[in-house]
Nucleic acid binder design. Structure first.
Length: 576
DNA sequence: GCCGTTTTCGGCCCGACTGTTTTCAGTCG
């Protein structure tokens, strides 16, 4: 089965290769837009007819026929042709920061520089500076850029970026004259990884704010600095872009700087159709931009409203149909962190966690949760000191004691039970029956063939004791690929059995992904947001899990954690 | 490649910064 992710990947490669071959930027944009749209479809494109596909805005006859070709042959003839036309060395040149397709093409074809090594040698020998359009300064920047090329392509995990941004914001708060400071960009949209940090602030004296920013202790190198914006390379090994606008433009700038780029392009096109022009300073009557007062700009709401749209939450701004939904007034009422009443999945020091059962209780209580389930690993996961049935019963007794002591939160025992290679769960049914919330996860035998893995998980989900399927794809971002399985079949089984599927908030997991979670919900599956915390402090990962749920467009009604204790108890007894 | 209550052809978002330039191309977001 060709997944939407695979289709997106192919169209993304098309867009990249066309940048070096075609010269028609609008065709490239059409592919980039298709990447976003297909990546966010709530169903597999492979299940849709050609007619269904072309009804989607941004998908026309061309892309639809490409999709059908990919479904039939696994690839695109045109892509194969482009691959043989655009050499890998050319792509490598263009990945150097400051080099784009034009300069890379020139160097590759006219000056026979066929890779990074040759580029570095040419720059070091001073051979670039005399080429037309190049100069000594550019040569120097290219040399610096080569060293950055690899690092700059690495992306930072959402949570890591969030903590880093918080630190920077605090430091920037000391700059006199800065009023508001907020993170924007992919971090504000809650993307699972972040390529660079974007920080927006309001100040009358932009140059002064920029100077303060570029001199912060966390800055390793200044890449660019002007009167209203700057870009730096941080010691934390990530780029940070900084933008200053006057207060009356704050909303417009926040909207612009939050992106995504595709969302912004679509929004500006809509503005043009309505006789306006939209930029980071505000919404203007067509032709007035730059010399008249904007019609809207102080807040994001003003701008969306003036365009006939309800305000769109940043997590949804990926050009996946959110603008049309905002026009219809049918945007989802997204779940919020405050709607969450407790956690299901975490670990104590009985297995591989750091804190005691009671520490976890206190952590949950300090978050204002109404209830919480506290978990551990099951017996076969020896590396994590999984609990034998006897040890498990002891911890259940201990939790009962804690319940008497802490009466303002309802406590449940959960367990992350291994799904064994044959799909059986790691405890006998009578043991499972003594656990309040049973989470089933795959921790072993990742390399099973797709069909076998699918059957394995389906079998586990068929066990009426199983409440939640844990970190379903098994991926670790940047470290381990998801294992092969048919998510559609598993979701169908989960929907039939009323088994919930987890959205795991651990920074490296973020599993389900936003798009998979959306697909699950469309298939009638209930989702559970969890922290997978290995310490009481890590219960804060709930915010990350909720962010994924929001990006998936989920509402309270989709999320198991939004049930009251009594409602949850009834849900847990659904098979009895 | 997509799209159309002006259009099936001819449009297609907008601005900042840099470096190499005497007015702008390239890159980036």
């Amino acid at each position: 089965m060709i997944t939407n992710a695979k289709l997106s990947e192919i169209f993304d490669e098309m867009a990249v290769l066309l940048t070096f071959d075609d010269g028609n930027p609008f065709r490239i944009r059409a592919y980039q837009k298709a990447v976003q749209i297909i990546g966010g479809l709530p169903r597999e494109a492979g299940e849709l007819s050609g007619e269904d596909l072309t009804r989607i805005e941004g998908i026309g006859k061309g892309i639809a026929s490409h999709i059908s070709e990919i479904l039939k042959t696994g690839t695109l003839q045109e892509l194969q042709a482009l691959r043989s036309k655009v050499p890998e060395g050319l792509l490598a040149l263009a990945r150097v920061p400051g080099m784009g397709p034009k300069r890379a093409r020139r160097l590759y074809y006219d000056d026979k520089i066929h890779g990074l090594e040759q580029l570095q040698k040419a720059a070091e020998a001073g051979r670039l500076r005399d080429l037309p359009g190049f100069g000594a300064k550019l040569e120097e920047n290219i040399l610096k850029g080569i060293r950055l090329a690899v690092k700059a392509s690495e992306r930072m995990l959402y949570w890591e970026a969030k903590l880093l941004a918080q630190k920077l914001l605090k430091e920037l708060g000391a700059c006199p004259g800065i009023a508001e400071i907020v993170p924007a960009g992919s971090l504000r949209r809650g993307a699972e990884t972040v390529g660079d940090l974007d920080i927006l602030c309001t100040a009358r004296d932009g140059a002064r704010a920029v100077e303060f920013f570029t001199r912060m202790p966390g800055v390793e190198r200044v890449l660019a600095a002007g009167a209203t914006k700057a870009a730096v390379w941080l010691k934390a090994q990530i780029q940070c872009d900084f933008r200053v606008v006057p207060p009356e433009s704050f909303g417009a700038a926040l909207q612009y700087f939050t992106g995504s780029k595709e969302h912004n392009v679509a929004l500006r096109e809509l503005a043009v159709k309505q006789g306006y022009s939209l930029n980071e300073y505000g919404l203007f009557k067509s032709g007035d931009a730059g010399h008249k007062k904007p019609l809207a700009g102080r807040t994001e709401e003003e701008i969306y409203s003036r365009l006939g749209l309800s305000w769109i939450a940043p997590e949804l701004r990926e050009c996946r149909g959110e603008i049309a939904a905002a026009q219809r007034g049918s945007l989802p009422d997204l779940v919020e962190l405050k709607d969450v009443r407790g956690d299901f999945h975490n670990h104590t020091r009985y297995t591989d966690g750091r804190d005691s059962l009671e520490d976890m209780v206190l952590g949950a209580r300090s978050r204002g949760w109404e209830w919480t389930a506290i978990g551990d690993h099951s017996q076969s996961l020896k590396v994590a000191h999984g609990l034998s049935p006897r040890r498990l019963q002891e911890t259940i007794e201990e939790l009962r004691g804690l319940q008497k002591k802490h009466k303002d939160i309802r406590l449940m025992r959960s367990m992350e039970v291994d799904i064994l290679k044959d799909g059986a769960l790691d405890y006998a049914d009578e043991v499972l029956a003594s656990i309040d919330v049973v989470i089933g996860s795959v921790h072993t035998a990742f390399k099973l063939p797709e069909e076998e893995m699918t059957r394995r998980i389906q079998k586990a989900a068929a066990n009426p004791h199983l409440d939640i399927l844990g970190h379903l794809s098994g991926r670790l971002i940047g470290r381990r690929e998801a294992y092969a399985f048919d998510a559609g079949k598993v979701f169908a089984q989960a929907a039939r059995m009323q088994t919930a599927v987890e959205i795991n908030g651990q920074p490296q997991r973020q599993d389900l992904s936003d798009t998979a979670a959306r697909m699950a919900a469309e298939g009638g599956v209930t989702l559970a947001v969890t922290t997978d915390a290995h310490s009481a402090a890590q219960l804060e990962y709930m915010a990350a899990a909720v962010t994924i749920a929001r990006r998936a467009g989920l509402e309270k009604k989709h999320i198991l954690n939004c049930l009251t204790y009594d409602e949850l108890k009834r849900w847990l007894e659904r098979h009895e």
